[in-house]
């Protein structure tokens, strides 16, 4: 805020001239960057397709209805597979993530200079790479099927669970830990009695939360061959069977809603 003396009396502006200039330059830079990105990105765009998009959308839309509901019975098995991928993947991910979180948390790590950076790198690497990319890699390694999906979900979950859990560990109350230390407990006992009870609710909440996300993610893993309902989606798309696509999407939607509801319910029960 600034008040300036001018010949006609004090003049009030929301910002100082310098502040206003900086803000204006910042906006200019942001707009310029966006515009430049736009030009670079659209260099190869074929605009005829873009103008044609509404017609295409209408075309696809008209083919998608009515949904082919008698396709539904063929989807139960893939849906069951999808849920199993998400659940087993979450369980495996959580089991691996827990020790990594303890290595990454500043107050529990046995070595601040070696193990903590390694644990943090594992967490970042796992978080940066989407489960679909993990699945792509794993299908090429262990072959198509559920196993690739489970491992992909597990690898992606390590980073998510690891990060949230190590933050929870770092937020624990020091005095409770100190009290356990003062009884002559070993360092493992301090973890089990002083720290674990404090992070256990967060642990369960994070796991269920991740399970909910994993249900969503595992619905598309089939696109790259990692099993589940995405496989059916891929097949239907390849054969341009749009009424089947509609049924699959509706089923995915319903599954996601149910898993979200379960996750919210369980989290409320824990806290």
């Amino acid at each position: 805020m600034a008040v300036r003396q001018t010949p006609s009396g004090p003049d009030w502006r929301a910002r100082t001239p310098r502040g206003a200039l900086l803000l204006w330059l910042g906006w200019l830079a942001a707009v310029a960057l966006t515009a430049w990105c736009w030009f670079v990105m659209t260099e190869t765009t074929i605009w005829a397709f873009v103008y044609d998009a509404p017609r295409q959308a209408a075309d696809i839309g008209s083919r998608m209805v009515p949904p082919r509901l008698d396709y539904l019975p063929e989807l139960w098995r893939p849906l069951w597979d999808t849920i199993n991928i998400a659940t087993l993947g979450t369980a495996a991910g959580v089991v691996i993530a827990t020790p990594i979180a303890f290595l990454a948390a500043r107050n529990t790590t046995p070595s601040l200079l070696v193990l903590r950076p390694i644990a943090l790198f594992i967490i970042v690497a796992s978080r940066s790479i989407n489960s679909l990319i993990w699945a792509l890699l794993l299908v090429s390694i262990v072959g198509p099927g559920l196993l690739a999906g489970v491992i992909a979900i597990a690898l992606r979950s390590i980073g998510f669970v690891g990060k949230l859990l190590y933050e929870a560990i770092e937020e624990t109350d020091v005095s409770q830990v100190e009290a356990i230390e003062a009884t002559g407990a070993s360092s493992r006992q301090v973890l089990a009695f002083g720290i674990w009870p404090q992070v256990a609710p967060a642990f369960w909440a994070i796991s269920v939360f991740r399970w909910d996300i994993n249900i969503r993610e595992s619905t598309v893993l089939g696109l790259v061959g990692a099993g589940g309902i995405g496989l059916q989606l891929q097949n239907s798309l390849n054969t341009l069977a749009w009424p089947q696509v509609t049924v699959i999407l509706l089923l995915i939607l319903a599954t996601v809603l149910v898993s979200e509801w379960i996750s919210a319910k369980v989290r409320r029960a824990i806290i």
Binding site: M41, V50, A53, A57, I60
Partner: peptide, 11 residues
């Protein structure tokens, strides 16, 4: 869906 509508590519 958007690839089907707008064609392949970053758009």
């Amino acid at each position: 869906f958007f690839v089907a509508m707008f064609g392949f590519g970053p758009f």
